[in-house]
Amino acid sequence: MKNKKLATFLISMVMVTAVVLTIGLTTAIHPAEDQNVSFNVPVDVEEGTIVYEEQSVRFEPLGEDAVVIIDSNGPDGLSTEVHIYPGNGEDGDIVSGTVQVGEPFTAEVEGLDGRDMNIVFEPVSDGSLSPASYEVGYELTVSSSEKVFSGAPLVVTIVLLAFAVFMLLTVNMNDGKFDERQLAARGEAAMNSFMVSVLCCVAIGLISKGVSSFPLSVYETTMVVAIVAVTTFAILSDINDAYIGIKERRRKMLILTWVMAFASFTGACMIAVGMGFSYDMARTALIVGVCLVLLAIELTVKTIIEKRGDRDEES
């Protein structure tokens, strides 16, 4: 029997570790964030020529390759020659082109080899502008192929794995906490809640494929499915008198559930006030609160029935 429990624990732990480690490591090593730069260049158009101060923008090492998107705004008839080169320009430019006003220019820069990237801007007049002072605005977005490492996802991964060990040990080492009828009822409830979570996941997955932009975040979706499955399990177990252990106190569990429900609603309100109700953590806390209230109502009703049952031994 002990070997069976150990095997159950180990198999569950391997599954959790595989999923959590894969997601944790993938998240820890991720592409660098896009860099955005914007600036204006004053240009004086004189008879037959234009006068400007040459502008160049330098980016820190970006890895092997980068994608540069340049948007410009200013008077029609004033375009910009762009030269992109790595390092100090000893190898010459690797990409050059003309940026027209109002037409985003995209350049795929290859061969940076971990060096800095410099972009030089040279405004050019097509001769249609009358002599005057103008201003050209530029907006740059640079995406790099460089991978950066963040420690936070790794710390979360380790904490989650420690929590998984604790939870799986608690679930598997419950000798004497529940009697044989309760264990059978809990098994049935677990099977039902498992099916509920699978169906929810499949439904959400299929619905998300059918729309161009799914309104729920990954955090919200996974948390909602998890809390719905846990609530289903708790309610089904309690209906069959298998949620509270033999030596556990019902009143304690009831008070704890109401307190947690209240805390979830308070948390949802505080997050909504601070960051808006469209923030996924606020909506998730609200759904957790609703599920806990449903569980608390069920526990309350069952407690009343229990009291009557204890009195006349019929329920």
Partner: peptide, 18 residues
Amino acid sequence: SQQDLADKVGVSRQTINS
């Protein structure tokens, strides 16, 4: 009572009732 018997055999009262 059902509770007395349940305590003696180490199960819940509801199990004895069932």
